[in-house]
Design a protein around this nucleic acid. Sequence first.
DNA 1: GTGAAAGCGCTAACAC
DNA 2: GTGTTAGCGCTTTCAC
Lengths: 338, 338
Amino acid sequence: MAVTIKDVAKRANVAPSTVSRVIANSSRISEKTKERVREAMKELGYHPNFNARSLANKSTKTLGIVMPNSAKIAFQNPFFPEVIRGISMKAYQEGYGLYLSTGQTEEEILEEVEQMVYGGRVDGILLLYSRVNDKVMPFLIEQNFPFVLIGRPYNIDEDQVTYVNNDNFKAAKTVTEYLMLLGHERIGFIGGNLNFVVTIDHMKGYEQALSNANIPLRKDYIVHHEELQEGGQDAVIELMSIEQRPTALIVADDIMTFGVLKMLADMNVKVPGDMSIVSFNNVMISELSSPTMTTVDIHIYELGFEATKCLIGKINEPNFSVKKVIVPHKLVKRESCK
Amino acid sequence: MAVTIKDVAKRANVAPSTVSRVIANSSRISEKTKERVREAMKELGYHPNFNARSLANKSTKTLGIVMPNSAKIAFQNPFFPEVIRGISMKAYQEGYGLYLSTGQTEEEILEEVEQMVYGGRVDGILLLYSRVNDKVMPFLIEQNFPFVLIGRPYNIDEDQVTYVNNDNFKAAKTVTEYLMLLGHERIGFIGGNLNFVVTIDHMKGYEQALSNANIPLRKDYIVHHEELQEGGQDAVIELMSIEQRPTALIVADDIMTFGVLKMLADMNVKVPGDMSIVSFNNVMISELSSPTMTTVDIHIYELGFEATKCLIGKINEPNFSVKKVIVPHKLVKRESCK
DNA sequence: GTGAAAGCGCTAACAC
DNA sequence: GTGTTAGCGCTTTCAC
């Protein structure tokens, strides 16, 4: 059996509670006793038991990370690793551990979240997606459980949730305007899954920019796809089959853009000569495409970092006021636009 | 306060222990009582507390995932998301949760692992890397703590550790032979960090193949780089500066190959016309490069899945015999070789 | 088949 | 400043 607080107490000739106080570094313990106790801990090789502590404390010092169908599509996208990197950094700084959701379907995920909450597995939750008709967020709100959303709540009172997001509407609008400034009027839009709020925001920004410029919206210029790699390729086929082809493309995601570039190359359409492309995210490999892609850097790492900061704040201050953090984006101009 | 086993017991007119047995679905409880208890649980909205259970049980039903400096380099590589996808799947199937390491340096990671082990945070550990002079593995062995390595132990008695790996030596050898069959004799090698065992194995396979073919090894054809994206590009500069340039390249990682392709394109070196390339991993976007890359599919998902299977086996059967699992690899021929 | 009670290792009143 | 003690919510002997 492992060495416990009691063993240490005996060894140091103090009460268990004193040892506990030394662990917590209570100011009410004299330096002398602290030293004595610490020495005893060293000698015996004492290490606190997390479960006991969590049970007594009702605090686990771990954060739950909830991803959309964790195993299937999510992880194909470098967005998630990168956002977790940001989370990880802040969590480590603050002494928190990370617990990962593993469910595949929406139901499984909801079940897992319930376990995390009811089972006292985590102190707070980071929601890495925001989906239309999501069940998880309403549950968390109803339970009044600390959580932070990366993204934007949809069909839910914004005042009820703390979230960290980009201004995706504006980003898409800017990007569209940028293409128009370059002289493009026939701008195609390759969006992601319409169940994700980010997709909706992108589309609205695109529409708004066109409308402001009095360019009529063409439904056939808009294609949505869930799959990242094939998605991009399929979309290109659709768009290039239109009689009056677009001269520029806005693509939801850099990874998709790889597929788009590939397909265009196969079709012998030159980028940026015959087709300009701009996309979103600026993941690491975005600068490794040929041509390198112009894309919106959404500062993924920061999204994770900030969200974690908010969450830990919420956990520590019970009546932490609801907060919205908008992480700025930045258009990174490379070679794919003309 | 949440509803506990006692509340359920009262409601169902049984003892707490009975409720516990119903949860465990003990065969010694009559169907009638089971029904009654379950109904009470439903009515009260009972959910078991994990920490209490773990404390009493000495089992957490969670697995620790340990990555090399989690936040920095690791996650840039799609290898990790993909292997976690495999882990995640098996873990979910078996009712295990996942706990992620967040440390940045080797020391931090060792500390975290100690916490996981001593603190009873996890039932077992998945080591996602195998590094020369690693401290974590010796610790785990010394503690006799259940763990499975993805990769191959180095400088450690193989009989002491269960591991899941590819035959990286053979893969590299095959790949080299493949290039030689295509007529290449001047084959460059762009390897990863030499502290990782996989790099060593790749190199040995490469050397062996050359030696078998009586082609002298040229040190200047071998370059190592840690960074995935710039790494590839830097390496190309080095190799292309050699008077007698290689005509083929073996690259440690698909992501690196993106950098290599980019740089070669910039230098106006045609692939596969002037240079053949083959790399390792076959991550999702590997089929989206131009030209598409020939690469060794190492079945990353399976590595994670199998390792998790082994680990859970080890956890459940105390004297589970040490096991080595070699996941087969497969050369995926695409357009980058000639 | 079911109940009573001890105990997992720790924290936090409450005493002194 | 430090000790005593009662839990935290669950499992698991040991009775009956």
